[in-house]
Design a protein around this nucleic acid. Structure first.
Lengths: 129, 129, 129, 129
DNA sequence: GTGGTCTAGACCACA
DNA sequence: GTGGTCTAGACCACC
């Protein structure tokens, strides 16, 4: 369970933590019920301010990816929610549209995009379902 | 040639302009050599600070999507560059990966993603190639 | 006499115990003079730290809901106090106000709130008075 | 548009801000589209750290009570959402239940509770609908 | 030990 | 000017 945080990216640090936890959960690297490192531990491990880790954990809890139990720690939620939120869906659609346009300018063809989607999807679902 | 700018989105205004110009060029709505509205005209039309439009145009010129000819105006570049920049490619790959993960949490399956990619790609290339 | 403790709730564990004891007393499920399980017994039954149970009992005793007789155990107080504490009254008023506001945002109308109050009140008083 | 923040309450400062904004919006004191004081202004006005105000505003935006426009400020949302979230509804029900129980111990009868609900509800809806 | 809140002060992107 | 992010360091409630 490794975190790769890059302060040089323009993605906020707390957002990078969120993304990586969600990725690890989706891939099954983090199992439901499993304990996450404490705020203090993770913050010292990736050399970052505890508040930043805390912010990431709170957002993850809001998204129901993790649950925090007072005085005990934070844990991966037992049942991962897959709520169909129309707004969220539209946001993803727009991001994807922009990605396709950007790919066009970067000389990446549709076939490559399709292969990448296959690859990422396989990483998430292929090995367990 | 219509712009849909939404200040409520968390995408910066200048970025929204950039995206829409690039989309219109990629779709062929804006043809090479075609003249863009002046900074002042566009800024008054979409009710936005001229500096913001100016920033968007500067960035578009840096990306070689448009060219500015002093005293004449700004125009769509004659040949759209499709440079294969490894950094840009990797950035797109990462964005796509995150989109696939987000889709997983939003309950959007691979099939839907694939269809969307098809749809967006068709909009860009289908009608002219 | 069952306890339903949920560590995932953001209500502290000791507070959940307090609330449930008070509810059972108010409903008549726990009768005046009745013996409560010992700290050790209850803590092992609901799988919780004994200190947490102890804290709940101490607070219940402070509120004169229960009394502890050294060497004999803890018991429901013979006469439930209904002291009119202006501070407490104001606190309840404020909580209720916030609940009405939250209901407004949650799309719950006044009628529903009234029905719920009726329902909860009936559970407390209806069956015995 | 006055804020009454009391650091002595055990309700977090940022939560007090959230509650008061929601109350003012529900009462019509703050109209849709109206601008809220900037983070810096409000923080200096109620003598509180800007980060605390910022946290309150971000949570209010998440709840779609306000919208923030980059570089311009924060505004009351044009259409107040009244989403029926079962979890939220259940949480309100539980809070109300606890309030009724607490009222029982405080010697407050059902009639008083009903009157208070009437009073608070009138403040929210009575004057405009 | 755990996470939650708050302060003070800094820097940055955006308009 | 606006809000967003991050750091450093403190205090508190809970378990």
């Amino acid at each position: 369970m490794y975190f790769h945080i890059d302060p040089k990216k323009n993605v906020p640090l707390y957002e990078q933590i969120i993304q990586q936890v969600k990725e690890m959960v989706a891939k099954g690297i983090l199992q439901p019920g499993e304990k996450l490192p404490s705020v203090r531990e993770l913050s010292s491990r990736i050399v970052i301010n505890p508040n930043t880790v805390s912010k990431a954990y709170q957002e993850l809890e809001r998204q129901e990816v993790i649950v925090t139990i007072r005085g005990r720690g934070t844990f991966i939620n037992e049942d991962v929610i897959q709520a169909k939120d129309p707004k969220k869906t539209e946001a993803i659609r727009q991001t994807l549209k922009q990605t396709v346009i950007d790919s066009h300018y970067a000389g990446i063809d549709k076939k490559t995009i399709m292969e990448w989607v296959e690859e990422f999807d396989r990483e998430l679902r292929g090995d367990r379902e």
